[in-house]
């Protein structure tokens, strides 16, 4: 039995000419909440579809709870909860009927968890699913996924389109369940404050590749922000005549240059000095800023800019 609940090896998926996943090798150990972040098109949803067997890799392989994804047994499917961003549920059914249907498939259905989680949301069991708000649907979906007591819960951008209150309820419900059950949660989101709040492990994907797999703190430690008076940076970036090591992004605030770099030690200050910068200082970086800098560094930009 593998120690990893998710394991991919050289996983590649191509849609026509577009490379959605590029030789992705990723191992996610059991337990904890693992956040996956990445810009749109980074390959996160494709990864989930491949893991759940709904797509077939162009090359490479992946396993879910020790089973090859393209041959998942009913037993393993029963151990995996999956909540997608649309919270797709049969709209023509009433809430109670959907719950009853789902419950019939899971012998270990936990009524207590269901009731406690659904209590975070104002969901009427007699109401048709189609009549629920997006937030209510998300809460209902999460309640059912958690009541199944999955070993692995995959949440693919579950708070997308939810208002602040619904998002708050969703996270609270998730964290409550996390304390109740032993499970691995894969949480995919663009909301950094959510990640910051719940993630124990941060996986960053870019253009189908893995670019970080560490704790959020470790990741933040990798990114540093340097503030300096440095007039020459504009021409350096334009002419690319000097290579700034680990450069991620830069912004000018109140006449001072804020430079974000990755994997640079204190000697980066010396580098700046050497290049003519003065009044140099290093500032702490929060997770959101670090991740944003990471993701925007290689983002496509129009040629004219």
């Amino acid at each position: 039995m593998s120690d990893f609940c998710i394991s991919t090896k050289n996983l590649t998926k191509q849609f026509g000419k577009k490379l959605a996943l590029n030789n992705l090798t990723l191992n996610i150990p059991q337990g904890g909440i693992h956040a996956i972040v990445g810009s749109n098109g980074a390959g996160k949803s494709t990864l989930f579809r491949l893991l759940l067997g709904f797509d077939t890799p162009t090359s490479g392989s992946c396993t879910l709870l020790g089973e090859q994804s393209d041959q998942l047994s009913a037993r393993v499917r029963g151990r995996v909860g999956y909540v997608n961003e649309e919270h797709t549920l049969p709209g023509w059914m009433k809430v109670a009927a959907v719950k009853e249907l789902q419950q019939s498939f899971y012998p270990n259905w936990n009524h207590d968890i269901y009731n406690k989680v659904i209590a975070y949301f104002d969901v009427d069991p007699k109401q048709k699913v189609a009549g629920l708000s997006r937030g209510e649907r998300a809460g209902f979906n999460l309640s059912m996924a958690l009541a199944q007591r999955p070993s692995l819960l995959i949440l693919d951008e579950p708070t997308l389109g939810l208002d602040v209150v619904a998002r708050q309820s969703f996270l609270e419900a998730l964290m409550f369940a996390e304390t109740e059950e032993v499970m691995t949660t894969i949480y995919c989101s663009h909301q950094m404050e959510e990640i910051e709040r719940i993630a124990e492990q941060l996986i960053i994907m870019e253009k189908g590749r893995l670019i970080n797999n560490s704790t959020p703190d470790d990741f933040c430690a990798r990114v540093s922000c340097w503030v300096a008076d440095w007039d020459a940076i504009g021409s350096i970036l334009r002419n690319k005549n000097v290579d700034i090591p680990g450069f991620l992004s830069h912004r000018e605030i109140d006449g001072q240059q804020h430079i974000l770099v990755v994997d640079q030690g204190d000697d980066f200050g010396g580098f700046l000095q050497k290049q003519g910068a003065h009044d140099i200082a290093q500032l702490p970086v929060n997770l959101e800023r670090a991740v944003n800098a990471f993701l925007t560094a290689n983002h496509n930009k129009p040629v004219a800019l």
Partner: peptide, 15 residues
């Protein structure tokens, strides 16, 4: 077989 409906239907402990 709409994308997410398909996942909702099949992601169950059933053959």
């Amino acid at each position: 077989t709409r994308k997410n409906h398909w996942a909702f239907l099949l992601q169950r402990p059933l053959n």
